[in-house]
Simulated scan of single mutants.
Amino acid sequence: MAATASRHGAFHPLRVAAVERLTDDAVALTFEVPEALRAEYRHAPGQHLALRRVTDGGAEVRRTYSICSPAPRGEQGPARLTVGVRLVEGGEFSTYAHKEIAPGDVVEVMTPAGRFVLEPAAGHYAAVVGGSGITPVLSIAATLLAERPDARFCLVRSDRTAASTMFLEEVADLKDRYPERFQLVTVLSREEQDAGLGSGRLDRERLTGLLPALLPVGEVAGWFLCGPYGLVQGAEQALKELGVPRSRIHEEIFHVEDETGPRPPRAAAPAHSRVTARLDGRAGTWPVQDGESVLETVLRNRADAPYACKGGVCGTCRAFLVRGEVRMDRNFALEEEETEAGFVLACQSHPVTDEVELDFDR
């Protein structure tokens, strides 16, 4: 990707080119990217965009949505970008997107981010997705198949009903275009199909039996799991039982609900704890107020600190722990090797020691 003024991305106002109704509770938003900004919006297949709006009451709301359009080829950035937005009950931004955003409107859009990506390469790849988890995988599969004639892709997708299935036509088009290299398996949890697999959830037990029947599991170079927490966890467990190395499994959680269980008790921060943070080459040190996360402390002093969901899901606030100790409330974004290497999510981290130092630039 081309370099930008801030390595953590920046917001730009983009005009909405189209709003397409995908299902009763899902829309696709397409943004026009001015030629002067196209290099900044180059993206790897699988990355996401953070969208921002300020409510009538003055509150800032940010949400991340995966790019479903294929990644651009060559050095030229995209003229348009499309994301899928599923309506979430009580969701402030998704409700706004469904009821208010119209073609011609302008939305604040951050430059692409995220590490749930696949750079096109030869080999056999596969994905297990649920619901709106199809959005980044659609970009991954479409880009891979278009750029690498020596690559294959197997998509196992789970949806409630046929009517609730996002990007139905786009996935069918991939099947028509690459019949020998794109394998599609659809499971509906609440509706019987005329042909194919029976209805029901894709859990660990079912996937453990299903996946070896579909493809040579051990030969798959990369597995991409995306969707609700329960589906992703079940798929990960199934793959581990089938002997797949953890290094070949890539995950992105879209929905985190009560099934994740209770959060660990929050560690009380020392009375006089301070946070030092390096961001875009500049460092500062600030006192932590009672109950604040590390991100909240930094944001009080650096409004440009990177974040999107504040829920431990998107990974935008990833930082390297240089010194001190923190405790994360929860983590659904960082891989095990990242946490072992010293990376944390600032939005979920609370100081355990008097001094904590983070580097957002690593």
Rank of each mutant, 00 (worst) to 15 (best):
E292R: 13
R52M: 10
E336S: 08
T95K: 11
L242M: 13
D258I: 08
L144C: 01
F182K: 07
E241Y: 06
F182R: 07
E119W: 07
R327D: 15
T82S: 15
L215S: 01
D56R: 11
L299Y: 05
G291D: 15
A18T: 06
T276S: 15
T161H: 14
G261N: 10
P13F: 03
A26M: 06
A28G: 13
L168I: 01
P45L: 09
E357P: 01
A18D: 12
P216I: 08
E338I: 00
R73H: 07
G209K: 06
G123R: 06
V88M: 10
D280S: 08
F167T: 03
L138R: 12
H255N: 12
T143D: 07
R21P: 04
V137E: 06
T161C: 12
G261A: 09
G234L: 09
A50H: 08
G90E: 03
H43I: 10
Y125H: 15
A277V: 12
D24V: 03
Q47V: 11
E147L: 11
G57S: 06
G342C: 11
G284A: 15
E92W: 07
L87A: 14
R42L: 12
A5L: 04
G281M: 09
Y96P: 00
E60P: 00
R148S: 01
F116G: 09
L174W: 05
Y229R: 03
A303D: 13
P179Y: 02
Y41N: 05
R63E: 06
L81A: 03
A28F: 07
A113E: 14
R206H: 03
R38I: 01
V109R: 05
A71T: 10
L197M: 08
P72L: 11
F31W: 12
T316R: 11
Q289K: 09
A79H: 13
E337I: 01
P212H: 15
P112D: 10
R53T: 14
G77F: 09
